[in-house]
Design a protein around this nucleic acid. Structure first.
Length: 805
DNA sequence: GCGGTTGGAATTTTT
DNA sequence: TTCCAACCGC
């Protein structure tokens, strides 16, 4: 089948996307443009045909096989808005994947007209695979090419895809870079300092969090409400936010928040573009709807609107009881409000749990029933009651780790796989005790949700090299690697480059090129810098010559980067080299360096090599969506879980979110769950007596039981514990208000940036150079001057470094 | 530019 | 208490 060259849907903005492949059309069997009238007619005809046969269609029947009535309904109700309230373990992913398969199999829409959004890459991958498997099972393939469901992805990935296509409309170029958190911090720090503020008093981190929050709320700088910005730098927050956005535009870069916010702005400001996507997406599916924040919500609403007055075919799947990301902007309200947002919406509840035993489900349900803000579901299971949830009190975290270690060894002896066991903690510092213990026991474990592959130093460095190779003007990335490995281009040099770049309005790389033409730099520095620049030119020349993976290896070798780690004697060095190899291997999945770099910020998932059978150690948050035969839930103590800070910051709402977290934890377990609390815990190095979590009191005791045996169990469920925490919490109420809002001091030092004096110098003029002192101009070459210095002799320098006296 | 020292902060996390 | 970042002295 011929590869038709892609001139996709016609539109005024098309110029922006010339060089970006946009593979979402069929290669054959459909007209060239999915949006042409012909296509629409064809699609309608297809639908009509499908409608007449769907009940009988064997393909559709196969998609429904093995589903319970509610699941079937959730799969089949494809027209109009649908909210699927899917309790834990009720087959949420199953419904989503089947629904997609159903839409495809009944011919209601081709794959490129289905928008399916998830939060994580992992969820997106899984869904894609499962849909493909479903379709292939029936001897069909989704699309002729392998990018079967082009619009299935994370909010961010889909946002990027749309943004790249219309970049110019939001003031970007299509090849924009996506900054990671580090880049973001570095940039913010520069912005803070450029505004004459002390970046120590006003840390970039804090501003990053603030801006992130605003972006999640869908607020562009001009929309920040007046009072909002007070928290940072005495009201300069919004100003700094605006400055930061300007810098991003200058760098042709976006941060993660922008991927959605800018996309939203694009839609709001360009109704024609919005209309194109509204038409394009005939079916919209949203996973984990309870986790959507304001931007995502607004974005979905815009896309879901129908211009022709029909109801959108939008299906949101979620569970209000599993909403645990309120602190990062998720709005449970979105799910609670669905029926108002989409009038006539059908609400389908999935309540049959296929995961846990009766007791586990009973304990979890009893606990979550204490929450007031919920839509309410009654989960049930046909499974046996099983063992009650065990609650154990221990002396301290070491004992907790010891007992859990013993339990695990016992399970192991009984033939249970370590892979089927998980320890879910509230905060990551709790992991340490377990790691220590397991290390001594020689028990194999893995930590899930640690530092991600693409966040590792060596990966970021390598990517920075590749970025600069393709785009020399990427200042942030250039700065990252200019002295990595060490080549004598330290802070002083970078500062000089910065200063010059700013005055001349050049990128760092260009500034470096110009400065190398002169004697501004020490010969040693100059040689090093010129050498680096020459290397980049050399590599750039090979872009067309070598396959991109080979070029990548060459860059890492010739730059001395590989050698740097080979010389390094620290124990991490070997694994870093491994990671670099892995990176190059991963790169092979893309057909060019540019293609790789455009996706890398979003797609690089931590695919750490598996060490075989190991206990899983992770936080409760990262356990969402997973399940294990046996789950240990340590640290159920007041102050830790529910966490003190959550209660202080968010009161009742915070408490309910913590309770949902407890619910998530319990419902991860299939057969066995064991909760524990320590009476003494070290907090910031100090021992503190702690009391059992109120969640323990709230457990329905027909489904839970104190641990038996020698484990020192005491206090669980006792009313004394309840009294204690009530007393404590009323004390807390009085003392909690004060500690915020430390005195705000306005930093008034402004940086005086001297204007570029230009190069209107005269021969023979006496001038002053900051390093070489006084001298007389003897030659002028554009902005470079040759000067006879009184002390330093004859030098070639940049005009902008000269002062007149 | 490196290595030692000192001060401040220490939930949860994706993209 | 411990870890990390920034700073200072060589």
């Amino acid at each position: 089948m011929a590869q038709i060259s892609r001139k996709t849907a016609a539109g005024s903005h098309e110029a922006a996307s010339e060089e970006i492949p946009f593979f979402d059309e069929p290669v054959f069997g459909e007209p060239a443009s999915p949006l042409s009238p012909t296509a629409q007619r064809a699609s309608l005809a297809q639908q009509a045909l499908a409608a007449s046969t769907q009940r009988l269609s064997p393909a559709a029947a196969a998609v429904l096989s093995g589903l319970n009535p509610q699941q079937c309904e959730a799969v089949e109700t494809v027209d109009g808005p649908v909210l699927v309230l899917a309790g834990a373990g009720t087959g949420k992913t199953r419904v989503l994947t089947r629904r997609i398969a159903y839409i495809l199999n009944t011919g209601r829409a081709p794959s490129y007209r289905i928008l399916a959004v998830t939060f994580t890459n992992k969820a997106a991958h899984e869904m894609k695979q499962r849909v493909e498997a479903l379709i292939e099972e029936q001897g069909q393939t989704i699309a002729p090419r392998n990018d079967g469901l082009p619009w299935l992805g994370t909010f961010h990935a889909i946002g990027v895809k749309i943004l790249r296509r219309h970049a110019e409309l939001v003031g970007l170029k299509p090849g924009f870079t996506i900054l990671d958190f580090d880049d973001q911090l570095r940039l913010l720090k520069q912005v803070i300092e450029a505004a004459g503020l002390d970046s120590k008093r006003w840390p970039a981190r804090q501003l990053a969090a603030l801006i992130d929050r605003w972006k999640n709320e869908g607020l562009t700088p001009e929309k920040i409400p007046a009072g909002e910005a007070y928290g940072f730098a005495a009201g300069k927050g919004a100003e700094l936010y605006a400055a930061y956005q300007n810098r991003l535009k200058e760098l042709n870069a976006v941060d993660f928040g922008d991927l959605l916010l800018e996309c939203l702005r694009l839609f709001q400001e360009n109704p024609d573009v919005l209309a194109e996507y509204q038409r394009r997406f005939q079916y919209i599916l949203v996973d984990e709807y309870q986790d959507t924040n304001v931007v995502q919500y607004l974005w979905l609403r815009l896309l879901g609107q129908k211009t022709d007055g029909t109801r959108p075919n939008i299906c949101c799947v979620g569970d209000d009881d599993q909403s645990i990301y309120g602190w990062r902007g998720a709005k449970v309200d979105n799910i609670l409000r669905f029926e108002m947002d989409f009038p006539g919406a059908k609400v389908i509840r999935l309540e049959q749990n296929y995961r846990s035993t009766g007791h586990i489900l009973g304990a979890a349900s009893g606990l979550i029933a204490h929450n007031r803000e919920r839509l309410g579901k009654t989960l049930f299971t046909e499974d046996e009651d099983g063992e009650k949830v065990v609650v154990a009190g221990v002396w301290d975290d070491a004992e907790e780790a010891r007992l859990i270690g013993e339990d695990i060894e016992a399970l192991q002896r009984q033939g249970h796989a370590l892979n089927d066991i998980a320890i879910l903690v509230r905060a990551s510092f709790q992991m340490r005790a377990f790691e220590d213990r397991f290390m001594t026991l020689g028990l194999s474990y893995r930590v899930i949700g640690g530092p991600r592959f693409y966040e590792r130093l060596e990966i970021k460095d390598a990517i920075a090299y590749f970025d600069v190779l393709l785009n020399p003007d990427n200042d942030l990335r250039f700065e990252r690697i200019i002295n990595t490995p060490k080549r004598g281009l330290g802070e002083t040099t970078v500062k000089l480059l910065h200063e010059y770049a700013r005055r001349q309005n050049l990128s760092l790389f260009r500034a470096a090129q110009e400065l190398c033409q002169t004697e501004e730099l020490r010969p040693k520095t100059r040689r090093a810098l010129a050498g680096l620049l020459a290397q980049f030119e050399h590599w750039r020349g090979l872009l067309e010559e070598l396959p991109h993976t080979e070029l990548a290896e060459l860059v890492l070798d010739e730059s001395g980067y590989t050698a740097m780690w080979q010389k390094d004697k620290s124990p991490t060095a070997t694994s870093r080299l491994e990671n670099l190899k892995e990176l190059v291997r991963f790169m092979g999945d893309f057909d060019s360096l540019a293609g790789f770099l455009q996706h890398v910020a979003l797609v690089m998932d931590a695919e750490t090599a598996d060490h075989g059978d190991s206990v899983n150690l992770m936080t409760l948050h990262s356990a969402k969506g997973l399940e294990f035969q046996t789950v240990f839930l340590p640290g159920w103590e007041e102050g830790l879980f529910p966490h003190q800070r959550t209660l202080e910051d968010n009161g009742q709402a915070g408490l309910e979110e913590e309770r949902r977290l407890a619910y998530v934890g319990l419902t991860r377990a299939r057969r066995r769950a064991k909760i524990s609390f320590a009476q003494n815990r070290q907090v910031h190095g100090r021992w503190q007596a702690s009391i059992p979590s109120r969640f323990i009191d709230e457990l329905p005791w027909e489904h839970a039981a104190p641990a038996t045996g020698e484990s020192g169990f005491q206090g669980a469920g006792a009313s004394a514990a309840t009294v204690t925490w009530q007393t404590r919490s009323s004390n807390r109420r009085q003392s909690s208000k004060q500690h915020k809002n430390s005195p705000q001091i306005i930093e008034a030092t402004a940086i005086d940036i001297t204007e570029n004096p230009g190069s209107d110098y005269r021969l023979g003029e006496r001038v002053f150079h900051i390093k070489f002192g006084y001298g007389k101009i003897i030659a002028i070459d554009a902005n470079k001057l040759t000067i006879d210095f009184e002390k330093a002799g004859r030098k070639r320098v940049m005009a902008s470094f000269i002062e007149r006296h």
